[in-house]
Every structure is written in structure tokens, then in C-alpha cells.
């Protein structure tokens, strides 16, 4: 069986690209390649990951400039074909600015840069990336962000809830969702969302930095591993 091929974007200022490449290649066994922001063809890939970091130094707004990179045009087509796209942290911000995901990410409520472990509860296991998980599963993952406060206006939040686009919420270790467990002030404690078609997912926590107990936890592997199931289903 051919190995699943994943591309990891690299914008000027990305810093999570090598973490993602390592996790997908060494921990998940995928065939991976770093994709330069100037590339224009993604035909070889089964899945795309937009990594964390500070693309273009977060000038103007997080993700605002990265959105106009040449590689974003083929990404739009890739997403519209229903192929899996994952945005992690800054990658999530880029997907929102590119309107591939709804909403926006604001400064953390505390104004602090948050770098610590959080828990998130899976609300939707029927996306391209959470297919290996069950609803109400709790994952322990690190966050590292200054602008992770997810925002949509009330009316659109109701739409997201109704369409089942809220993929995960911050929670306490036992899975309780409350404001104490919400690290950044996200509306409805949202940690991850997806598009209507459920193939594009964005999240602020870093699953690629939690793939081995040696680095503090391996729940990230459970999250990223969903792509194996999705790719297998797509192939049959």
C-alpha cells in the first residue's frame, strides 16, 4: 500500500513546520515533504498541514499576509476537493484569514503569551482529522500562543453549533467545560473548529508537540492519527 503523503507548509516565520514534519513522518509513518510558500502545485499530497509559528511576523494581524502567499491558491482548490487540511495554531489563524474557516483569533484575554498544557474535549469525531477519536474523548495537549481567543459573533456561533462545526473545547482534565479551563477567552471555550464539509480543521493546541511520552505526552498522536483512518476510507 502506498504511504499517505502529507505536505507541511512553510511560510517565512513558520516555526512549527519541523515539529509537524517529524510527528507525521516518524510518529505516524507518513511520507512527508516541506512545502515552500511559493509552490503552486499540491497534486502529490493526500493531506496538508499548516503549522504553527509567526508567518510574516504576524504583521498587521496573525495570518493576514500569509493568506496571500502563492501556495494558498492551490490550497483553496485542495480544500474544495474535500481533501484533508489541518491548521495548527498560526496555521489555524491563516485558515481563518483565508476564509477557509469561519471566525477570527484575538489576543488572549489575559494579554499574556500562553505556553502550557491544556485539555480539550472532542465534540465532533466526524471530521477528517478526528476520525480516530470518539466524542467526549479528552486530549492533553500543549498550547503556545498570544492570539488564541477564538471569536465569532453570536449568530454565527449558533450556526457553528447547529452544523456541528465545533470540533473541540477546552476543558478540565475530567472533561468539564468551564471558564476556568478556557485559557484564552475563546467563545464557547472553542479550541478547534471545522468547515461545513468537515475536511478543513483548525485548532490552537499543538498535537504535533505531544506525540511521545518522552516529550510530555502522546495524545497528539491520537489526534493526528485520525488522518490514517480518513485516508484509508478515501482509498476504499
Amino acid at each position: 500500500m502506498t504511504r499517505i503523503r502529507a505536505g507541511v507548509f512553510s511560510f517565512p516565520g513558520s516555526n512549527g513546520d519541523h515539529d509537524a514534519l517529524h510527528a507525521l513522518e516518524h510518529d505516524l509513518g507518513l511520507s512527508v515533504r516541506r512545502v515552500d510558500y511559493r509552490e503552486t502545485n499540491l497534486d502529490e499530497f493526500d493531506a496538508i498541514v499548516l503549522p504553527g509559528g509567526f508567518a510574516y511576523g504576524d504583521a498587521l494581524r496573525c495570518g493576514a499576509i500569509a493568506r496571500f502567499s502563492p501556495v494558498m491558491a492551490p490550497l483553496r482548490a485542495f480544500a474544495e476537493e474535500g481533501r484533508p487540511v489541518l491548521g495548527i495554531c498560526n496555521g489555524f489563524q491563516v485558515l481563518c484569514e483565508a476564509h477557509l474557516l469561519p471566525g477570527a483569533l484575538l489576543r488572549n484575554r489575559t494579554l499574556n503569551f500562553h505556553c502550557f498544557w491544556t485539555h480539550m474535549r472532542i465534540e465532533q469525531s466526524n471530521t477528517s482529522w478526528t476520525a480516530g477519536l470518539a466524542n467526549a474523548d479528552v486530549l492533553r495537549l500543549p498550547v503556545a500562543h498570544g492570539e488564541g481567543s477564538y471569536y465569532v459573533e453570536d449568530g454565527q456561533l449558533a450556526d457553528l453549533e447547529r452544523e456541528g462545526q465545533v470540533v473541540a473545547r477546552y476543558c478540565s482534565p475530567d472533561g468539564t467545560v468551564n471558564e476556568c479551563a478556557n485559557p484564552n477567552g475563546s467563545v464557547a471555550s472553542i479550541a478547534a473548529i471545522c468547515n461545513v464539509r468537515r475536511n478543513v480543521v483548525g485548532l490552537m493546541p499543538h498535537p504535533e508537540r505531544a506525540t511521545n511520552s518522552l516529550i510530555g505526552g502522546s495524545d497528539g498522536l491520537r489526534f493526528l492519527g485520525g488522518i490514517l483512518k480518513t485516508a484509508l476510507t478515501a482509498a476504499t
Binding site: 484575538l106 489576543r107 488572549n108 484575554r109 489575559t110 494579554l111 481567543s149 471569536y151 459573533e153 453570536d154 477567552g185
Partner: peptide
């Protein structure tokens, strides 16, 4: 309007 502005609060 309605968007949190923690900088403004600070």
C-alpha cells in the same frame, strides 16, 4: 462592537 478588547481594558 461586542468584540473583546483586553488591550483597551488594560
Amino acid at each position: 462592537q461586542g468584540v473583546n478588547d483586553p488591550q483597551g481594558e488594560a
